[in-house]
């Protein structure tokens, strides 16, 4: 537990560091939301200066950082000029949607990757294994952008799936069960895109670590004892292969979040991605900081979860921690 607390504290420290880094970066940017007003001859210089003073843009950098931190603590996370309100209320539903999308995709991808990878490792050669190798290589080379566009084409052509968004019109009037079904049908395509993007990497790693476990002496011993091959694979090799895979889970979160950014924009899933893009195009800097910080939070949360799992799965780490 001490180890876990240490990791959490470390994560918190990183978060503060990232907030400082990104805030300074954003504040050093040339121009702000009011910069374009200067070009408008109908708006006087004094008006722009007044607006800047009102939103505190004329104060020195450390002071602005502190006031931004205070607003962060209140859950407001700064002020969005484009929306004319605090960032927090805009951000949380978006963050929830991204979390829903990425968590579903991760769960599905792992559920598929572990059996596929283990089966591949046990099989080693043969046409099916070669086919799997080819398919994963091709999926690996297929950019997530093209993958998302392809699935969108499927939706447009067949009409089996909605072409974007998260809910249909009139979602509010539906019964609870119908609402869940509605969100699930909107979720299907973005999740498929993420799973297909994630799967080749995961399957290849699962195969590698299970193959390594299968080559270990204890597996040969188990086989020599006459334990059936299925049981050797499932009870002996898989648990031994779990350790590097849990670390991989932590590492894959970063890639997943990046991939999700693209998929969300292409499929207009109302997550952090479209919000970030909108904020960039509007030069609304506090709104840029929001998604960036939340994505860091999600990444650190994923790493912490991986740590927890590792702690639960590996008795050696538990012994170390004591």
């Amino acid at each position: 537990m001490a180890r876990l607390a240490r990791r959490a504290a470390h994560g918190l420290l990183l978060l503060v560091g990232v907030s400082l880094l990104s805030f300074v970066l954003v504040e050093l940017a040339p121009g702000d939301y009011f910069a374009e007003m200067r070009l408008d001859p109908r708006i006087s210089e004094a008006t722009v200066r007044g607006l800047r003073a009102r939103y505190g843009l004329d104060r020195p950098l450390p002071e602005r950082y502190l006031s931004w931190l205070r607003s962060l603590a209140r859950g407001e996370m700064g002020y969005s000029f484009a929306y004319g309100g605090p960032v927090g209320p805009l951000l949380w539903p978006r963050a929830r949607n991204t979390l829903l999308l990425t968590a579903t995709a991760t769960a599905l991808a792992w559920l598929l990757a572990v059996p596929l990878g283990a089966w591949w490792a046990a099989r080693r050669a043969g046409p099916a294994a070669h086919g799997l190798a080819g398919v994963t290589a091709l999926l690996l080379a297929l950019p997530d952008l093209v993958l998302a566009l392809g699935l969108l084409l499927l939706a447009v052509r067949t009409g089996w799936f909605p072409t974007g968004g998260m809910v249909s019109l009139g979602h509010e009037q539906l019964s609870w069960g119908a609402r869940v079904r509605d969100v699930a049908s909107h979720l299907a395509l973005p999740v498929t895109a993420l799973v297909l993007g994630l799967l080749p990497v995961l399957v290849r790693h699962v195969r590698a670590s299970v193959a390594e476990a299968l080559a270990a002496p204890f597996v040969r011993a188990a086989r020599a004892h006459g334990i059936p091959e299925r049981r050797v694979l499932l009870r002996h090799a898989l648990p031994a292969a779990a350790n590097p895979l849990i670390s991989l889970f932590g590492l894959s979160v970063a890639g997943l979040l990046s991939m999700s950014l693209v998929v969300e924009v292409v499929m207009s899933w109302p997550g952090l991605g479209p919000l970030l893009l909108e904020a960039i195009l509007a030069r609304d800097f506090h709104l840029v900081l929001g998604p960036v910080l939340v994505s860091t939070l999600l990444l650190l949360g994923g790493n912490l979860l991986a740590d927890l799992l590792l702690y639960a799965a590996d008795p050696r780490i538990r012994a170390d921690a004591r």
Binding site: L21, V26, S258, L261, L277, A279, I280, V292, L299
Partner: peptide, 22 residues
């Protein structure tokens, strides 16, 4: 390096791109 790695890289890329002129 840890600071830079704590951000998903596409988000980081977007954030840096955000502060540069459009």
């Amino acid at each position: 390096a840890e600071l830079f790695l704590a951000l998903p890289w596409l988000y980081l890329l977007f954030a840096v791109r955000a502060v540069l002129p459009l």
